[in-house]
């Protein structure tokens, strides 16, 4: 039983008796023997596996022939899968970096010593683990299917049984997939006479997406009144010019699709998971929250890896595993 140290200090609970020597074993021979047996079993297993199964060796490397699909090693295929759904900097660098930093910071966020030494050390840990794993898996797979527009296929198939000419309605155009917000959606708002929007010409209305693709950032040196404009920093070396806040324009539709929505989902869904567990009355304290988030992370990692490795065919299309072309 876990004993709360503060409760012991107050005298509410008796301290656990000091552990007795008869509860202990000697490392020699008890543990050393187990390690030896494990090593033997391990060695035999891998010799048998390696006799039975040959490592792949494809054709000689050739940068002029791109296999379709080209895939990263399997443990990075989750990141490759993310690349299909968000900005490459986010998928390839920022998300894994933050994930690793959070993982390393875990013991400094969940500092209570209680609940260690046994599996699932809090009363609701198993329920939280199962729920979080299912929650993360369902949402990850669901979002991938949504971004591939699979719901459009399903609805269209069903609707065309009723009406042969049915097509996805224009009003739902931005809901074909996430990218459709940028590419498949058009609307305009009229701009009153005499109001100057931006610096360029306009036809009396603001059109989505093309009029939102170069939204000047404040104080970027090229927009606004004269005193807010200055010269290009030519005196800086090239790579520092790239870091300099000059002539920065925001591609708003791309920003929404590639950064805003993915970040909102990656922050919002874990938060929603914690809120849901709290409402269910299962979540007590940081240890429970850590179990939920860690389980969710593992679940997302596994689902992304499986989909990236097993369900992505030529052109990174979503296909069934047996339709993934073999490359040589």
């Amino acid at each position: 039983m876990a004993v709360d140290a503060q409760a012991v200090a107050r005298g509410d609970v008796a301290a656990r008796p000091r552990r007795e020597r008869e509860q202990e074993l000697l490392v020699w021979p008890d543990l050393v023997f187990i390690e030896f047996i494990a090593a033997v079993v391990f060695t035999v297993t891998f010799f048998v596996l390696s006799v039975a199964l040959n490592a792949p060796l494809l054709n000689r490397a050739n940068l002029n022939i791109t296999p379709n699909p080209s895939k990263a090693p399997w443990y990075f295929m989750n990141l490759q899968e993310l690349l299909l759904h968000m900005h490459p900097a986010l998928a390839g660098v920022i998300v894994p970096t933050i994930a690793l930093l959070l993982l390393a910071a875990l013991p400094y966020l969940d500092r209570k010593a209680e609940g260690q030494g046994v599996y699932f050390g809090t009363p609701n840990a198993v329920k939280i683990t199962l729920f979080s794993a299912a929650f993360a898996a369902v949402f990850t797979a669901g979002l991938i299917l949504y971004d591939q527009g699979r719901h459009v296929n399903v609805v269209t198939n069903i609707a065309q049984h009723v009406d042969k000419d049915w097509e996805w309605p224009t009003v739902l155009a931005p809901f074909q997939n996430v990218r459709a917000i940028q590419t498949g959606w058009e609307w305009e708002i009229p701009v009153p006479e005499g109001v100057q929007v931006g610096s360029g010409e306009h036809d009396g209305e603001l059109n989505w997406p093309q009029d939102f693709e170069h939204v000047p950032m404040p104080f970027n040196g090229t927009s606004g009144p004269d005193w807010m404009q200055w010269d290009k920093p030519d005196f800086l070396p090239g790579w520092m010019q790239a870091l300099y806040w000059y002539d920065l324009n925001l591609n708003l539709p791309a920003f929404v699709v590639e950064l805003l929505i993915p970040v909102a989902l990656m922050v919002g869904l874990p938060a929603a998971l914690l809120y849901l567990l709290r409402r269910l009355g299962w979540l007590y304290g940081v240890h429970d929250a850590a179990i939920a988030l860690f389980t969710g992370f593992i679940s997302v990692y596994v689902v992304l890896t499986i989909i990236g490795a097993g369900f992505r065919g030529a052109g990174q299309d979503l296909v069934l595993p047996w339709d993934v072309p073999r490359i040589d």
């Binding site: 494809l58 050739n62 940068l63 090693p73 490459p88 900097a89 920022i94 490359i327």
Partner: peptide
């Protein structure tokens, strides 16, 4: 992964290092 120098190796490493190349700073 790269060392066998076959198509699997070179393209996996190309895909992997392209991800690093997309870093917002100094990628």
């Amino acid at each position: 992964y790269l060392l066998p120098w076959d198509q699997l190796a070179i393209w996996a490493v190309t895909v992997g290092t392209n991800m690093i190349g997309s870093a917002p700073l100094l990628g």
